[in-house]
Simulated scan of single mutants.
Amino acid sequence: MVTTSIPATRVPPTLGVLLAGGLARRMGGGDKPMRTIGGRTILERVIARLSPQCDALILNANGDPARFSPFGLQVVADDVPGFPGPLAGVLAALDWTATNRPDIDWVLSAAGDCPFVPRDLVTRLHEARARENAELAVAASGGQSHPVIGLWRVALRNELRHALVVEDLRKIDRWTARYPLATVTWAAEPLDPFFNANTVEDIAEAERLAALDDAA
């Protein structure tokens, strides 16, 4: 059988950042990744999926970092004020990586409320980026792009800071449109790997999907 995945030894060192800095307004506030589905927090599920794929994991979150201490991850807050959105979390991760892991050139961002992220996420994104000679790579499923879930080159951090602070740019797709971008699509059936829990109703659906996923 022919495989399209590149060998793990050829995947560049990659740091993963779990973005958990949102305000969860549609759930009445609080930390969405701390909600429980199938007996485990959403964050536990994301960590279990991404830990084997990344050289290290950090968590982007604002407020008291002690609430995440049970997970044993470095918590990095936004340094751009006003909750400007996920791009600020990506920037915080790029800056942290440049300072603390200068051996790593790539950061993988993932939403902290996506409990079913693919186990081949990092490999396939790197494969597409390299094949298409792209600067960035993002995930897609069900005819929809998921720009929060993607690969970012650490060397672009100063350009991203300028866009956020000087240009007041907030939308991820407006940022990614400036660079050669690879998009990798995953099947959305029987389970969309990028399902995210945004509402209380989504938690009920996540329980059903978790049962399918855990049985697979």
Rank of each mutant, 00 (worst) to 15 (best):
T97V: 10
E132S: 09
L191N: 01
R178M: 05
D214C: 03
N62Q: 11
P12T: 04
G142Y: 06
A111P: 00
M27Y: 02
R129P: 01
R119T: 13
A66V: 07
A188C: 03
D78V: 01
L94A: 02
A93S: 13
R124Y: 03
G89C: 08
L19D: 06
R10E: 15
N60D: 07
N133I: 02
W152C: 01
T4L: 12
A177T: 04
P180S: 11
A163W: 02
E44R: 12
D55Y: 00
G30K: 09
A197I: 15
W96D: 02
N60E: 11
Q74T: 15
A155K: 07
E167I: 04
D168Y: 01
G72T: 07
T4V: 09
I6E: 08
A111L: 06
L108W: 02
P84E: 05
I47S: 02
G142N: 14
P81C: 06
D64W: 01
P84F: 01
P33T: 10
L160F: 03
I47T: 04
L19F: 04
A210D: 11
I42C: 06
R131G: 12
W175M: 03
A8M: 04
R10A: 12
P190Q: 03
G29L: 06
A88W: 03
G21A: 15
P70A: 12
A163F: 00
I172M: 14
A206Q: 02
G29E: 07
G21V: 01
L19K: 04
R35G: 00
P86S: 13
R208M: 10
T3L: 10
N60Q: 13
I6G: 01
